[in-house]
Each structure stands twice: as structure tokens, then as C-alpha cells.
Design a protein around this nucleic acid. Sequence first.
RNA 1: GCUGGGGUGGCGAAAUUGGUAGACGCACUUGCCUUAGGAGCAAGACGGGGAAACCCGAAUGGAGGUUCGAGUCCUCUCCCCAGCACCA
Length: 941
Amino acid sequence: MAREYDHQQIEADAQGKWAALNLHETDLSDESKDPYYLLVEFPYPSGDLHIGHWYAFAVTDIYARMLRARGKNVLFPIGFDAFGLPAENAALKHGLDPKEWTLKNIDRMRTQLQSMGASFDWSKEVIACDPSYYKWTQWLFAKLFEHNLAERRKASVKWCPKDQTVLANEQVVDGCCERCGTAVEEKQLTQWFLKITEYADRLLSGLDALSWREEIKEAQRAWIGKSEGAKIKFKISTAANSGEEKDIEVFTTRPDTIFGATYLVIAPEHSLALSATQHTVQEYLARTAKKTERERSEHKEKTGVKIEGISAVNPATKTEIPIFITDYVLGSYGTGAVMAVPAHDERDFEFAKKFSLPITYVIDPVTGDEQKDPVHKQKIVAVVQKGNQVLTINWKPELGGRLLVGGTVKEGEDPAETARREIIEETGYTDLEFVERAEEMVHHSYFAFSKNQATLAHTTLLHFRLTGDTQNAQALEADEHGKFTVEWVSKEQAVKEIHDDQHQRALARFMGAACYTGTGILARSGEFSGRASEEAKWEMVEAIGGTRTTQYRLRDWLVSRQRYWGCPIPIVYDPEGKPQQIPSEHLPWLLPTDVDFRPTGEAPLASSKELKERVTAIFGEGWTPEYDTLDTFVDSSWYFTRYLDSKDDHDFSDQTLMKKWLPVNRYSGGSEHTTMHLLYARFFTKALYDLALVPVDEPFTERFNRGLIMGPDGQKMSKSKGNVLNPDEFVTEFGADAVRIYLAFIGPYNEPGSYPWNLDGVASMRKFLDRVVRLVHKAKKTKETPPAMQSALARASVKVAEDGDRFKFNTGVAALMMLLNELEGAATVSVSAMSDFVIMLAPFAPHLAESLWEKLGGSGSVHQASWPSYDQALLQKNAVEVVVQVGGKRRGSVTLAPEAAEATALSAAQKLPAVMTALNGQAPSRVIYVPGKIINLVLGG
RNA sequence: GCUGGGGUGGCGAAAUUGGUAGACGCACUUGCCUUAGGAGCAAGACGGGGAAACCCGAAUGGAGGUUCGAGUCCUCUCCCCAGCACCA
């Protein structure tokens, strides 16, 4: 018989036993044990449980069970994120009632979740679409409204033409609807917003104290997108001098470049653009409006149009500069207007080139390593060009490879003359045409070893063209470095091979990529010239009357949805059309049922007669309902507080229990929720904390993003690839326990990697479980467990528990496998040793462990048994293998007591034949001995 | 492009503070047991040498460095993944 147990029988028996013992209901008021809140994202009830669900719930369950055995009072709740689009789509497609469809799916999923052996506390279940739950979603929304954190305003919103609904920023991926992939349009609508931007700074700074993985925190930081800068006003002067004083405010993170602002660019959405009557402007706006969000954000050639008849005044230089409208400026970020500094911004540079606008360099790069008390030198670097080729000098490769022509300016000499002189000296070329001298310089600090001198070179960049033949180079200058040779190479090759900062910069300046976006020394910047740009930045803002501000990429959270299957927004409009919150005695504000929810672009609730009548009946004639429903992310932003008091009809949760149980100790979920759900939940918590409704301002102490299970081909599972695996097939054939332990073993659970499903994997886990069963049958009713075996058990109990704490179930399972190997190797295994093994196996394979526990004569349930604990002394080995190295190479090993003295170790090591050979009669000049690990005999020399 | 995380056998992966690289498995090879095996048990599995116990050498993307000793630390470089991306 291959199979040692009937998994279907065992699963049914165990699950029946747990239900009878009511094992998984947590007494939240139990003060005898430490509370531990283990949370896993509640699922959307789509109806079918796939491998991803198994991975999410079954593996997290391992830890819940392990912690219970280790004496914690574990809260491991479950519920359903039951509002959302699929229910509505199913309703449309099959003519079903979204509510019935959802509730039927929930019923099915409950059964499936039970079949995993997941030890959820169902008594605390929450269902987002249940009026007893959404009553409190509405109540919390009303609280936010009361405190001015929810606001109705007209805004340009993302609209999905297929789903006929507004989308949040977060639901737009690459300019397309996250759900259906349709290109998103822009629409002006009056919508509800939650003011998450007011919490942007706290959401950002709060991350520092969280011990989450860096990539999760970085994703949130990027999403919040803080940038510090200044708002600066530019006065507008009109040719027609209407006498009206106007100005444009811009936002910039580089106020230090203001002297280089040679024009302004504003977004097509900017009021100044919208009010312009100029024909070409209107044409441009019409063209832009037709573009989708996606088309606009594509990197492509810059377009724009100049507004005629008006200009702005640069507050630093006082010169008049033109104003352009362009769609590379976003209306929704900053002020929708930007001061263009083509010399120091790539986009502005590109635009300036296309529209032939002046480029003024105001920041000189500083390269090299900073030196103390440098000697100042005037230098030049010259680019000599002939067609597409550039003259380079082959330096000794070890001294930096290829260079352009360089040289030192003599006292009173014009740098252009210096360059000409140097070119002739070094190459012999005389047919030189001077092209350009860059207005900016490069400051290069370095240590001149030849002169033993810290040097700061102020380098002028020059550009020459060779008009004659490239073949007539003369004898070259030689110096202490040897002879130079000249080579003409293509621009591209030169860019690739020239590594010296100044030379690189010279090449870039004359060969295309001339804009410099770094910091440096201010030039042509009035009184600020000569100072470090970073250091003078904020003084400059002050001097020109700007204000220092911070901008965030994060926008307010748009929560209105023109959909049916969501939480109704608890708002009514008075006869003046002003929004009023629905008093709490009328909550839950029920979702009407007489609704036509076919997408028409109108909110489905508008078709409800009952809703209108309800509003009139309660509030009077002239009052009208709000027809939008809430984004489902609102439902999931607070559910973890509801678990603590899920039945309460008088409050959303319980203050005493929240004080005890929040924040959640560990939150397990998918990486797709890093920026949306996780940020929203943090925002809700902070807002509710400020309203004294929750006692913590961060909801989750730890967050773990699990990995992704791939198909056997290593590709993401999808129907079109035909690589979708149904977990039920594996469960039926090998049992739930084998599937659980396989998922635990597949890879580390604390890393968001991806793991291909190995078709033989579950079978191999079943073999492991069968071996356990065989060994249990072999167990003898003896009390004696030999010390070596006790020590193995002790090590495993520590290892498995530690790995659980790190969510590294793969190595935990490996530790159990090693332990099994050891136990199998023994002649007899005592019942007590085997019982301890079964207790440690129980979190992974809860059903089988239950059955084996009974066979071994254990009382109650194995899941009530305590995690094995052993004398610390058993963790110490009394003999360890110490590796012997000679000169860092392994030459053998000796077995010693862990605390053996160096002399003992040395003499044992020296007796090894291989060591004697390696020493070859010499005495080691040095001995490195790490007790219990290694002894290294170092030979002299 | 920027930011973050990674790169270890044929595959999934192990490896507290630098201390035997590849634990534990999958797949593979050989043998045993068996009517049979998609079962079980045992052994093997980088290269070279040897009948063998063994010996020598190489090896954690690549190149350098620090160290008695580097997967681990430092510098440079290549590649993969994720997030952000015309955000001023």
C-alpha cells in the first residue's frame, strides 16, 4: 500500500472534531495570554477558489496554529470584501441579482476555506455588502464629512467609457482602465473626494518607523511623491496694456535656476490657456482634448503654441519672456505652470530647441573630488570636430584613456588662443575654425600628483572645426607621460570612451546633450553668481518673493462611483442643492433594489423610484438623493477594526478591544495592494485616530507581501496560456495537508518573488506525510527518548518556531524533514518523541496531525497541545566538527568539544595527515581558531 | 531614465555576527526488494587523477580589492524583477 492514510476520512473527522470543540473562536477578553492579531486580506467572493487563495490563507494559517501552540491568544479572522464590479457584471450578463450572486459565492467560499483546514474564527466574520457592516462604512464617511475630510468638488476625473464609471488614479494603469484595459478619458464631473493629501506628509514620515520591507515602503514613498520646491509669481504684461495686473504662479524644485528661465510653459488646462481667444491656441486646446491620458503621457516630440500679445517678466532677470501652452505640463500637478529653464531641464531643452528659444546656462558643473585649499588654475578643453568625427588624444590607458585637447591658460591669454595654441602644439593641425566658446565653465577639483598639489581647475569649453585635411598631423608633443597619439573617432565612440568628467562635459555640450540637470556653481545669476546652487537656493526664493512649498504626486482620493453594487454615499441634497449628511438614525442608508443597473453613464441609483420617495418621506419635498456609491477601497480601509466587534449595532468597533488588539501584529497580503489598499487603510487609521475613534495611528505593525504561484512553465497562470492548475485536483488526490505543506515548502513566504508550481511537488509532500504515518505506527510505548534524539527534537522545535516568526515556512518544513530523517534512523522511537513531532507538524498538516495524535493516545486535540519545549542544554552539542584549514584552504576536520582550547585543537589538527602534508614540516606562523567552527594554520611568508 | 530588490547546481532553494557553499526537496543515475510499480529502501551525482579509501584543482553573473579566510564587506561592471516616470 503506497498511501498510508485516507485523507478524505481524516479531513472530515478532524474538521468535525474542531467544530465540536469550537477550537478557533478567540476570546478577545482573555487576559491569561498575550494577544496576537494575525490578519490576512479578506477576499473578494468571486466564487472559485484558486491556488492564489490557497497560498494566501492556508500558509498564513500555519502561523496562526503555530502561535496558538506557543501560548498566544491568536485572532485570525476572515470576512468578504463583497461589494464590487464583478457582481454587477454577472448580473448584467446572466440576469442575476448582484446580492444573490454575491451571497451564493460567499457560501461556497466558506465551505472551500473550511476544507483547507484554515482555522479562521468565523464568529467574527464581516461582509462588506451586509447592511450591518456598511452602516458603519457610512457612519465613518459621515464622520470624515463632518470634519471636512470628505468634500464634493468639480474635478477632471478619469472616466472609463466601457465600464461607464469614474476611476481613481490608482485604477488607471498606463492610461487604461485597470479592470478592462480600455483607454481612459478625462471628464469634468462633480465628485466626492477624501482628502488624503492632507495626510501625505504623515503617511510618508510614518513609514520610517515601520519595519516593513524596503520595497514596500519605497513603493509608497514613490506613490506619495514628495518634492520640495517653491512657488514663484511671474508678472504678466499685456501688449494691449489693459491696466489689469495679472500673474502666473509656477512651481519649481529648482529655484536656483531662475536666472535661466527664458520662457514659461503652462498646461492646456490652465485658466490662462482656457481664457485665450487666439485662434491657434483654441486649435491646440481642441487637439489636446482629443488625446487620451495615455497619448498625452507618451514621451514624444514636444508640441505647443505661443500665446501672442502677452509676456511674463522673469522676477530675477526682469526681462520679458514669452508664454507657451504645451501638453507636457500637467494641469493637475503644482500650479499647472512651469518656468522653463532649457539649459538645466531636459524637457525644456527639447522644447527650446524646437521653438528656437534662448538657452542661458546659469549652473556650472563641479566635477571631481573636493580638495582642501586648492590652487586655482585656468584651463581649457577643446572639442575639434571634422564632420561626424572628433579628435581625441590617446593618453596612457591607465591614466584615463581617451581625451580631448586640454591645456592651461597663460597669464593674460584669451582661452580661445590657448586652445588654438594647444591644438597646434599637440597635433600640428593649423586649419582651424573657431566655432563657439561655451558661456558656462566646468570647475574640476583634483589632486595633481605630478605637482603634489590640490587643484581647482576652472575650465573653459571651446569648440573648433578642422577645415583642412585630417592626414597632415605634425610631430606630437611629448611629456613625462610619454607620447600622445591622435585619433579621429566618431562622436558616439568618443562619448563611450571618454571618462574624464570635464572632457565628457565638453563633448556633451557641443555634441548634443547640452543640458545640465545637476547642481553646481551659480553663474550669470546676479548677486548669487559664484555661490553653490544648493546652498543659495532658498535665499534666491526669498529674494524674488517666492514661497517655499512642498508638492505631492498623491492626489485626493476620488471615491464616487457611478455603479450600483457598492456602499451608498450617506448624503442627501437640500432644496438648495447643498450636500447634507444623513443623520445616523437613518443608517444604514440602504441600497435600493428597484434599480436598472445597465451602464448608461448615469448612476444606476438614479433610476430608483423608491430612493427618491425615501428621501422625500424623510427629509421633505425638494430634497434629492446622492446617486453615487463608494469606491470599494473605502469598505476595506477599516474592516480590521470591525473584526473586534463585528456584531455591534451601536458602534463601529469597541474602544477597549481596539486598545488591546490594535495595531494588527502582522498583515499578510498581496503586493498588488501595496499602494492602494495599504495606503488607504493607513490614511483611514490616521484620520480616525485624529478624530479619537481609533487608538492607533498606524494600523499594521508588520506587513508581508507573499509571492506569486506560477504555472508549471514558470509563466503566470492564465486561461489563454492553458497553464492554470486547479488546487481541487491536488486536494482530491493527495489531500489538503499535502497541498498546504507543499505551498509552505515552495519558497520563502516573506518575499514577493514568484514560484513555479512543480507538478511532482505535492506528491513528494504526500510521501513525506506517509513516512510520518509509518513512523508513528512504529512508535514504541516507552518513556525513554535517547539524549541525541531529544537534542534533535529540541533543535527542531526552536528552528521551526523561529522560521515561522520570519514567515520562512520552507526552511521550517526542511527542519521537520531532517528531524524525520533522524527519527527514522533510530532503532526505536518513543511515543513522547513522536508526539512532539506531531505537535510540530500540526500547523502544517493539521488534519493528519489530529489523526496521529489520537493514535498516539494524546488527549483532546493536537491543536490544544503546547509547542514542545526542551532544556536549553540540549541545544548544545557536546562534540562539534571543527574544520581545519592550512593557509585558508580546507584540509580536513577534527571532532572536538565545543569549548575546546586552542592548544587542544591545534594538536588535533596537526595530527591530520593532510595537514602534515600541507604544512610540509613548517610551523604555522599564525593560528586562527574560532571554537566550534574553524582552525586555520597560516604559514609565514 | 530614476528608485528599490535581486543574480548561488538541470529546477525550487539553504547558508545569525565574514568561518565546511549547495541544507531540505524535485528531476536524474545505479543497485536492492518486488508478479508489478507512478511504491519502498540504499548509494551516487563540478572537473581531473585513482581499483579504492582518497588526492588535486575549480566554483555563488563578471572584473578588481580588503582579510588568515568573502555568497556575505568595499569599488567598478553586466543582467533580471518590481515601483515610479514629460510630476517641473
